[in-house]
Design a protein around this nucleic acid. Sequence first.
DNA 1: GGACACATGTAATACGTTACATGATTTT
DNA 2: AAAATCATGTAACGTATTACATGTGTCC
Lengths: 185, 185
Amino acid sequence: MEGRNPDIPTELEGCALGMIWRQQPCTAYQIRMSFQTSPTTSWRASTGSIYPLVRKLVRIGLVSQGAIEADRRGGRLLRLTRAGEKALRRWVLSEDSWLAESIADPIRTRSHFLAMLPPANRAPTIQAWIEGTRKTLADLDRRIAEYGRLGEIEELWAHRGAQIQIAARLEWLEQIRLEMWKTPQ
Amino acid sequence: MEGRNPDIPTELEGCALGMIWRQQPCTAYQIRMSFQTSPTTSWRASTGSIYPLVRKLVRIGLVSQGAIEADRRGGRLLRLTRAGEKALRRWVLSEDSWLAESIADPIRTRSHFLAMLPPANRAPTIQAWIEGTRKTLADLDRRIAEYGRLGEIEELWAHRGAQIQIAARLEWLEQIRLEMWKTPQ
DNA sequence: GGACACATGTAATACGTTACATGATTTT
DNA sequence: AAAATCATGTAACGTATTACATGTGTCC
């Protein structure tokens, strides 16, 4: 994020390396789809970012490419090289302090300015946020059930992390709703 | 975030409008400092972003500028215009579904790839994440105590949201540590 | 044969960061 | 008088997004 150490991948590079590591051998297309269907990444992995990124990872020797036999679509199978594995490990282990800092949440960001809404709008806004959060939580629950069946323990842990954080937001919003009721403006 | 509605400010524009609204009249410098000292924004508000952004907000009529009497530093006092207030309200009320979606957390992102670390590195890594998270939480507690004294209820609520989410991460990490203990690889 | 998924790519655009640069005011 | 803070600004760089473009393979 700041005065970057070029030996440690950026967030997106590290994340892409991890995805390739888990699914290798795989195409860039598959990585892209994984990003888009994951409930826990905010990166959209548009074509304009993923293909140039993969090209860069290949160029600096972290990823190797092999052609798919008898595939005329130009599909290429990606794999992590030894250097790629090391770089992924460095990224997972990176110790910058901002890692543990507070995380951005668009709903919480907006909550700072609730007071500038007309009083009649405040409770319905909180209610809409609560309903959206409930929907996200239900979606996560469904996915966690799937991962539980597949037995991928790290994926299960990671998704449970997302679940716990979203559940915390829900709890917080419900507290606000209650307190707003008690202290009307 | 996506096919943008030009009537609704972006995240950073909305957030800046909110900051100006709360502190008006104030200089761009003050807004910048607010962003940098806040424990709950991820935007660094570098000079290269804040001054062009303020210029843009003035240009499109959401913010007005007034010179500071007898200040030769070129400081200018910012205020929200009526249009700025409306835009801020639209931003707070924006109902895009991604608002409630899962939030990005660099520690959780890394947790997906714990399995590719040498087994001896895993527990210490979790431990480092736990300690970093505890430090962030302690910092938030201190600030919440301050806001409680100041009596700014919305700021208190928002910071409590951050606190609850960070506490959830801590709880989650401690669960993982326990389960790793039970099921060694 | 048409729809859809697979597979990759580029161009224009927008924007945030870092680093650099300038000068006034206040504090020590 | 020096140091720190207030106050603004620009240039170079990297990179994520959207939109557009191309072609293959598979399924109904």
